[in-house]
């Protein structure tokens, strides 16, 4: 089972060996409301941890998505161009944004695991 880690800004990364898939949490998509457009990074782009990886446009506003980990973009979720609402309907699955080749896996140690993130979200309401 792949290991999923979260940031306090509600992004997640699911690590599988030396690659990681990034997205936003269900809590985050609910806060954003209906997603109508996602601007994805270019494949080949090298991102440092906390760099802007994508922009999500909801009906009302734009929100930046910051990468939880450093790495090179090796794949993006083209399906979001056809159906950006996948971010709403399946934020932890089909609504993923990009796959990165990780450059510093030790960054993962400082991120929250599933249980810690869940407690964190509960503390917000």
């Amino acid at each position: 089972m792949a290991d999923r880690k979260y940031t306090e800004d509600h992004e997640w990364v699911e690590v599988d060996g030396e690659t990681g898939v990034i997205g936003i949490s269900d809590y985050a998509q609910e806060q954003l409301g209906d997603v109508v457009f996602v601007e994805l990074p270019d494949v080949g782009k090298v991102l440092d941890q906390r760099d802007e990886a994508a922009v999500i446009e909801s009906v009302k506003a734009a929100a930046e998505v910051y990468t939880p980990v450093s790495g090179e973009v090796i794949e993006v979720n083209e399906e979001l161009n056809n159906d950006p609402s996948l971010v709403n309907s399946d934020a932890h699955g089909e609504g993923w944004f990009a796959k990165l080749q990780l450059t510093d896996p030790t960054e993962l140690d400082a991120l929250m695991d599933e249980a810690t993130y869940k407690t964190f979200v509960e503390s917000l309401s």
Binding site: G33, D34, V36, S58, V59, K60
Partner: peptide, 12 residues
């Protein structure tokens, strides 16, 4: 209220 659970598109 900015939106209800139905969401802006559905409400619109």
């Amino acid at each position: 209220p900015v939106q209800y659970p139905a969401g802006i598109i559905t409400e619109h």
